[in-house]
Design a protein around this nucleic acid. Structure first.
Length: 501
RNA sequence: GGUGACGUGACCGAGUGGCUAGGUAGAGGUCUGCAAAACCUCCUACAGCGGUUCGAAUCCGCUCGUCACCUCCA
């Protein structure tokens, strides 16, 4: 029947059948957004991919706890080296509370995720709400000899960790010696560190930092890598099943996460399986502000970007992303999005014909439907084969189109349903609906404008009245009334209102 | 320079040794008052060069090209 689900594990660089640590429970952690600016479409890929993963795991019968964090503390400007936290900086510029900035972007992110069809995570911890846990983890790391305090900041001691045989770099396949030889030695803030490879666990805040918390070492804020280790541990345990994120996070972020989880008490690799989605390019080039091809999620939905000829709906975007395998780069082009929109609509049209696939009463079913049934079941099985092969949604969608062609053929000529059994048809239509809606999360986006349709209906109403076709007039009135709409004949013309009954 | 991906038909995008990917676009047909949708048929590609093999898009080598990440920070 269904093949076991195999997933590619960055840690082992290989695909392997997925074995939960504590079936039927599955813990999934995804590195969530930093909420100091609006997310771009590249940021949408991970959530969409891992949404499908959690949906599919649930479909397979697992009880999933899906955790996706929000990063809302201590983000330093990369380009200025001024040690200024981004949220604080924006907050000062706008004369608002730092948390207000973070909250605003978090809310926007939530709206975007919802329309993109991403189910909310079961737990959405915020870094700012887990300072205690992070401080405790730092203390453990220091106690275990893998962290040191320096001028109020605390750093992770990579050489010490590596000397203990813990293999810093094992996730991203990096060798400490090579990292050292390639390092630049006159970076700002380096003097506090014993080794350039060391990374911050706690940073002392200077007077300009608006977001700061007390700790045994200084008033400051936690290092960026720490929150995910601390929060995943809190909500999913010392070792859980799947940790996801963008490929760009593999090094150093995830590498540091593993180091932290290995250096504190109950050492683990944090997650059994590490999964990384690939990046998005725009017209073949990486997204960057300097190239001017940076597309935010809002711009995509509104079409307000020069790369885009028109707005693209959230579901179009979701379909577009899922049409590629998550480990491939995907190139955003206007042509590609247009093609995706049509493909998405084709899939949706398929949903609408499922319940119509019934053999007409006057047609007799063939005595032997074995061959037809087998063919139909093969088409369904192919869809699962794709998903089971490292969540290959591209293959799954291709197989769904193959299944759809078959179903469309039936719909065009219902008598041909005589070649298959009712059971097989039921299996196929259920699978189609389940995979499209529940697993891939692609739902029908209403495209028709209700007011326009109403206006059109009223035109027919007026026409019917003019020709004294009162049976039609009554019919229209009754139909609209059933929708809570009343037709108003006024001297100024025909209008409508919501029924107050 | 290091690490990792990759270069597939008009476009997007699966596919890791022989068996149809799929979507979009295009051509022809069926259906249809017109159209749309749908169905059928066609367009059959794998960066270049060389090698391994009975057989390669798929393995190996070289060349060219693309992308991401690269110890601060996020």
């Amino acid at each position: 029947m269904q093949h076991p689900l195999s997933l590619y594990n960055t840690l082992t660089r290989s695909k392997a059948p997925f074995q939960p640590l504590h079936a039927p429970f599955v813990g999934v952690y995804l590195c969530g957004p930093t909420v100091y600016n609006e997310a771009h479409i590249g940021n949408a890929r991970g959530p969409v991919v891992f949404d499908v993963l959690t949906r599919y795991l649930r479909h397979l019968g697992y009880t999933v706890r899906y955790v996706r964090n929000i990063t809302d503390v201590g983000h330093l400007e990369g380009d200025t080296d001024e040690g200024d936290d981004k949220i604080g900086k924006i907050a000062r510029a706008r004369q608002v509370e730092p948390m207000q900035v973070a909250e605003g972007y978090a809310n926007l992110y939530h709206r975007h995720m919802e329309v993109l069809g991403c189910l909310p995570p079961d737990i959405e911890p915020r870094a700012s709400g887990h300072i205690t846990e992070q401080v405790e983890m730092i203390q453990q790391i220091i106690d275990n000899g893998f962290g040191y305090e320096s001028n109020g900041s605390v750093y992770f001691d990579v050489p010490a960790y590596n000397a203990a045989g813990r293999h810093y770099g094992k996730l991203s396949n990096r060798v400490v010696e090579e990292l050292l030889s390639g390092s630049r030695d006159n970076l700002a803030g380096q003097e506090e560190k014993r080794s350039p490879l060391d990374f911050a666990l706690w940073k002392k805040a200077d007077e300009r930092h608006l977001m700061r918390w007390p700790s045994p070492w200084s008033d400051g804020f936690p290092g960026w890598h720490l929150e995910c280790s601390a929060m995943s541990r809190k909500y999913l345990g010392t070792e859980f099943d799947i940790h996801g994120g963008g490929l760009d996070l593999m090094f150093p972020h995830h590498e540091c996460e593993i180091a932290q989880s290995q250096a504190c008490n109950h050492p683990t690799n944090e997650a059994q399986v590490w999964m990384h989605n690939n990046m998005i390019t725009v017209n073949g080039q990486k997204m960057s502000k300097s190239l001017g091809n940076f597309i935010t999620i809002s711009q995509l939905f509104e079409g307000s970007n020069t790369t885009l000829a028109q707005p693209y709906s959230p579901m179009t975007a979701r379909f577009f992303l899922l049409q590629a395998h998550y480990r491939s780069t995907v190139d955003i082009t206007d042509e590609g999005l247009q093609a995706a929109r049509k493909g998405y609509r084709k899939l949706m049209n398929g949903l609408r014909l499922l319940e119509k696939l019934v053999l007409p009463a006057d047609v007799e079913r063939a005595p032997d439907t074995e061959k037809g049934d087998a063919e139909l079941r093969k088409l369904v099985a192919d869809c699962y084969t794709g998903l089971n092969d490292d969540l290959n949604t591209a293959r799954a969608i291709a197989s769904l189109f193959n299944l759809l062609r078959k179903l469309n053929g039936f719909a065009a000529n219902l008598a041909t349903l005589a070649t298959v059994s009712a059971v097989a048809v039921e299996e196929a239509t259920t699978a189609y609906h389940t995979l499209v809606v529940d697993v891939l999360g692609l739902v029908d986006e209403p495209r028709a404008n209700t007011e326009d349709l109403l206006r059109l209906t009223l035109e027919f109403y007026q026409e019917a009245k003019a020709t004294k076709a009162y049976d039609k007039v009554d019919q229209i009135r009754a139909a609209l009334k059933a929708q809570g709409i009343v037709v108003k004949d006024t001297k100024a013309g025909v209008d409508w209102a919501y029924s107050e009954e």
